[in-house]
Design a protein around this nucleic acid. Structure first.
Lengths: 222, 222, 222, 222
DNA sequence: CATGAATGAGCTTTCATTCAT
DNA sequence: CATGAATGAAAGCTCATTCAT
């Protein structure tokens, strides 16, 4: 019932505007997007946009926050789905490299906002929150893997940083050098790199069930 | 020298402007930097900047190209310094995480331009060239490591993508979440993650000479 | 009225701007007139002018069109006033040479726009439309004169071209070589030249009523 | 000897620049032509152009003067060629409507300068001088025609104004509404209109020698 | 609440003109 | 004399923001 366009709720209008900004921001970069573009996309007036957000920048901050929270939530869901760390990892990686369109769209906006964030504290704050959320979920996988003695016993915080680096770093490279067909390959690369980092030989794990895997000691323990 | 009012060479003036843009761009982001800021920094007139570059964007393209080539050259030098793949890697990672100021400065501009590049072909082209240059040098390390049977035998192109992802991914995270004191730790993390990806146990390698290392077979072969 | 701050109608604002441009354009030529001049004259802001017209040039195109249509309408009215071809002609010539201020103003802008029109299709298009409107009305006079056997029987299209040439050509010469007192003389010259072209001896016609004239056969028939 | 490019003579350089301006001005209008364009066309440096002419406007004044004098000289030559007023007229009209390219080029620049001249005294002065030169030559034809009792006896000054109006007015109309094939027709129209104005029936004169014509009394005398 | 006309600061870009060489 | 690098005033245009309705 709360999903109508009716203005009973400020949050709805704000989300309506943020979604519109999202659509527009995919095509043009920050400096080229006009409030009018967002208003038009949201089927609102310019005045309405500025009524719900103090400034244009506030719209983009809200967008950045919404988008990163969305992705973080997907990471959470990816982890919650299973108790098997290998499947959790697969899900997280899939989620990150999945859905070509969303991926490109996310990275475009993400990079733009990262650029902003490298200088403006508001953007940086949101991005830090995003990283923290990521690490919270990545950590669960790593701790789970270590608890089950599948992953080698290393510092979880460090491992999470490396995991995020591999996922994000390959994602950006795909954005610039890959094509739609490559996406799965980049995902596979990320998965393998993360597993190796944790002392597993990915080739041995392919298509194996958790039970079978459990009979394999991690590399570092062999 | 070469900074006189009458430069025999256009290249000198262009570099003068690019360097000035660099200084300014560290503090403000693209859309906030005015041509006049660059001109002032270069101790030139607004007109002079536009005399050597057609548009403001051309200045930034030149800056992005210069900066990425600079970093790529440093990678090249880092590789050329030694024939030992482990030392080459150390050098590349050090180079990437070294020199705090340059690092921050580079990443700020790099991220801004990545953001642009996610939509504008000119930026994307330069970034692709940068990635290619990186991979060219990273490859040498990997091939060298594989030739010396230190690194496990995996696809070099893939390994190079992963290596870049780890370095760039940790670099960006450091930019947002790290502080100057952390930088070395992030570098160590990158090094270890890369080595593990290639089948080496980093802890065993620390402070060991190449000769000693040579007696150790890579993990995958054990 | 209609000059209120809240015009229900866009057309009113546009006309307000065009009229302001008219006032300004009389004094300065195209390249010297700044948007701000027009805005000031219209008692609007620079932004408002650009709100109603995409570019400065669009303002001038609208001005040129408005001005030529105005003159063409006056020609139409001059023809509609009478059924006597001689009186119609008198009216058209009077109208063209009449009203000193308007005449100078019109010719100044007209010549500037003609100059633009000699290269830019948009101006040329408007001027062609103006010529066509002129010829439409001139034709009526000529056909009327021929029907009444006052004018010699010649090609109407050609005659209209000549008529326009005489009126415009003498107008321009007056602009450069005449003074306010001369204006009537230039008008008389135009009238006589046109009548002679149609085979009438103007001196015989002066101050004569249409009835008396009717008793005179055209020159060509004598 | 004085026609080399060598700079012994200031007048040569000035003419070189004026000719270059002519070439450039045909394509672009005043406000779009840059000094650099003229310099490039003249194969000189920007500095050289401003060395021989104080300002950019001075170049255009010189161009306008040169161009109008050139045309006036052609009118003079057209008159000098014959002692027969009908042939003189033919020559003048031919000259005016002749040579399609030159005609278009002339009218483009002429109209641009007329536009300037409607406000700036320097241009107006040159244009007045042009009209005076035209009338000087047109007068000779008219006086000649009247002396030979071919033309009706009317005020010569007035007749010259009308003659110029017909020629210029049809020229401008051709520029906007005619095509290359039409040019001769416009010329014929001009000739006939002028002759009729002087009391001659053009059709009777076609292809007739002066002797035959002499036996015909002017219309007004019949 | 919502609108969108109106504002005007601020930007890029152009280019005539200057002047050291 | 000649050059063309350098200047900087001037202009068009954009667009976030305001505010009367």
């Amino acid at each position: 019932m709360a999903r109508t366009v009716s203005p009973e709720n400020e949050a709805i209008r704000r989300q309506q505007i943020v979604s519109a900004a999202h659509s527009v921001f995919i095509k043009k970069d920050y400096s080229k997007v006009r409030i009018e573009d967002i208003a038009k996309q949201a089927k609102l007036s310019k005045g309405a946009v500025l009524y719900y957000f103090e400034t244009k920048e506030d719209v983009f901050l809200a967008l950045f926050e919404w988008l990163t929270q969305l992705v973080a939530q997907r990471f959470e869901a990816a982890v919650e789905t299973s108790t098997d760390p290998l499947i959790q990892l697969d899900n997280v990686v899939d989620q990150a490299f999945d859905s070509v369109k969303l991926h490109r769209a996310f990275f475009r906006i993400y990079l733009d906002c990262l650029g902003q964030g490298s200088r403006k504290e508001e953007y940086a704050r949101i991005n830090r929150a995003f990283y923290q959320a990521c690490h919270e979920h990545y950590r669960k996988i790593i701790e789970n893997g270590q608890r089950k003695a599948l992953f080698r016993d290393i510092d979880v915080t460090d491992a999470s940083l490396v995991m995020r680096a591999i996922i994000e770093g390959l994602g950006v490279q795909w954005l610039f050098m890959g094509n739609d067909g490559d996406l799965k390959h980049y995902g596979k690369l990320a998965r393998e790199a993360i597993l190796r980092y944790h002392g597993l030989e990915p080739s041995e794990l392919a298509f194996k069930s958790i039970n079978e895997i459990n009979s394999l000691a991690p590399l570092g323990a062999r």
